[in-house]
Design a protein around this nucleic acid. Sequence first.
DNA 1: TTTGCTGCAAATAGTTTGCAGAGAC
DNA 2: GTCTCTGCAAACTATTTGCAGCAAA
Lengths: 150, 150
Amino acid sequence: MIAVAHYDPEKRFAAIVQKFRESRHKLTPQRLAVARVLATSEGHPGVDAIYDKLQDDFPTMSLATVYRNVMLIKSLGEVLELGFPEGGNRYDGNKPYPHPHLICMQCKKIIDPELASLKDLTREVMAASGFKIVTHRMDFFGICPDCQSR
Amino acid sequence: MIAVAHYDPEKRFAAIVQKFRESRHKLTPQRLAVARVLATSEGHPGVDAIYDKLQDDFPTMSLATVYRNVMLIKSLGEVLELGFPEGGNRYDGNKPYPHPHLICMQCKKIIDPELASLKDLTREVMAASGFKIVTHRMDFFGICPDCQSR
DNA sequence: TTTGCTGCAAATAGTTTGCAGAGAC
DNA sequence: GTCTCTGCAAACTATTTGCAGCAAA
């Protein structure tokens, strides 16, 4: 299996809360709960997955609140949004900077492969094209080992 | 400037028409017109760009028809769909297989950089993860030389 | 107390679909 | 003549927004 590096989820949560404070945003229970799910999830949850996960603790919370807080955290630079045109964006609050993803087309799981050579690729494109490259997106789609053996 | 390889647009158009025939789809003027735009456009047009471009020749054609035919051509494997979650998917009928893209965040132009090392990257991910990789998506986002000097 | 946040419901935007007539073959 | 395709309008879905009450600071 591939090596996967993750930050300490509690530190990630604290970093997001710190950004809330710096930007003078109120620390509501709903907001903190969304931040905690983003910081601690390894599975790159979507908005509806976050919503579902919080139903036990916040039965009256609305989807709109999840959307609003995910957007806020994204605007603070503390979550990476993985948009998919088919809908159902996924979020990574654990590593909020661009990095490659490996997506199982069957079970929809998303994992983070370690790829050393990607930085060189970015530099190669910059030099060859004259573009000033700001960010990138690199997704591999396939069938994971679990789904292959089913 | 970066080197950009393109196929002969007329050959691409003929290949798409050939697929229409093989799959027993009727050759309506609207369908052929959409295929021609996809085969000959270098700018990775979106559905609305295709629609706009065809307004002169087919003033009564509906957006739905463009959508339906783009989807048909995609299902025949003759166009590469570049979906963006913000909406406005873009299409490449000239090189209908996965390849990296370089997207200007300002003028929205999309060009095809030549990157030799990408195949190795895919193999690296396959070997390390155990995934059976089916396809990939690699986008670089930045500011093109034209927009930088404006 | 003040101001921003939440829940609800309605609005939005891109895309898809049902249907009846038109047209390819 | 048959059966698919088209144009129109309505439906759909994920997301966003307006508003009135609620709660953090």
